[in-house]
Design a protein around this nucleic acid. Structure first.
Length: 259
DNA sequence: TAGGCCATCTGGTCCT
DNA sequence: AGGACCAGATGGCCTA
């Protein structure tokens, strides 16, 4: 069962599991049934081999002293908590997916967890890079213009027209202009014909996520690669066609997610 | 059918 | 003591 089961998830796992978190119990779980069966089978030996102390019903007992019902009840509580914890984690993951520059929709398979994390990392690095470039650009525009005007006029003034003219000369400004000046519909670039659109269930290639994996079919067809990305007005596009990834992000293969 | 991805269970460890 | 966190195991679903 996914955190968004029944709504956006393209797949439903554990269909035989009905969770009732409020009651802290679940029913019809095959694994649980199996567990119960096994638990019954080796009830006696479990009590002998495991003498860990635990509590049930507010009274401290060794596990061997717990009744089968108490052990099951305890196990159910722990399982329920763990399930809730994982659901919360998945909710957070969904929240992250929502803000990622990636196509959303019922017909689009959602990013896997690992892809979401890698894409998020890439995206953050790219935004940081863009911010730095933007700062440089602003510095160039105002600093440069001020220097020029200070030589020609006692009271330098920067007109919008002059700024625009200066901006138009800057290579980065051109790409920025194309981004800011675009509408969401036009930003949905590469929204090519259905024939060139990717399969609705195609996840992003590992290459886009920063892996140095062998180039597969997706990379052979740029349209195929980029058409599934949502482009936001005023935001740099992370897709490989619009903007190459920062050099620091091109080595994601070395990314380690150590604790 | 193999492999990827996922949910769930479970026991261990750490923290409050 | 109880809960959170973690990682390993397991089994189901889906796709190439």
């Amino acid at each position: 069962m996914d955190s968004d089961a029944g709504s956006t998830c393209s797949r439903s796992s554990s269909p035989d599991l009905v969770v009732d978190d409020t009651a802290g119990s679940f029913f019809s779980n095959k694994m649980f049934q199996k567990y119960c069966q096994e638990n019954r089978d080796r009830e006696s030996e479990v009590g002998q081999s495991r003498m860990e102390r635990c509590t049930a019903g507010g009274k401290t007992k060794t596990r061997s002293e717990l009744s089968r019902e108490e052990v099951q009840d305890m196990r159910l509580k722990v399982n329920s908590r763990e399930r809730k914890r994982m659901h919360d984690l998945n909710q957070a993951m969904d929240g992250l997916r929502e803000v990622m520059p990636y196509a959303h929709g019922p017909s689009v398979r959602k990013l896997s967890k690992i892809s979401t994390l890698l894409l998020a990392r890439n995206y953050i690095l790219m935004l940081s890079n863009s911010l730095e470039e933007m700062k440089k650009l602003v510095g160039d525009v105002y600093g440069g213009s001020a220097a020029i005007q200070s030589r020609t006029a006692p009271h330098p003034t920067i007109t919008p027209a002059a700024t625009a003219a200066h901006l138009s000369l800057h290579p980065l400004a051109q790409s920025l202009h194309s981004l800011v000046g675009s509408t969401p519909s036009t930003l949905q670039h590469h929204s090519s014909s259905p024939s060139s659109a990717p399969a609705p269930h195609s996840p992003p290639s590992a290459s886009f996520l920063g892996f140095h994996a062998p180039v597969q079919g997706l990379l052979k067809d740029p349209l195929h690669l980029t058409s599934s990305y949502r482009h936001f007005p005023g935001m740099p596009c992370p897709c490989s066609l619009c903007q190459p990834l920062p050099t620091t992000t091109s080595t994601l293969h070395s990314l380690s997610m150590n604790k």
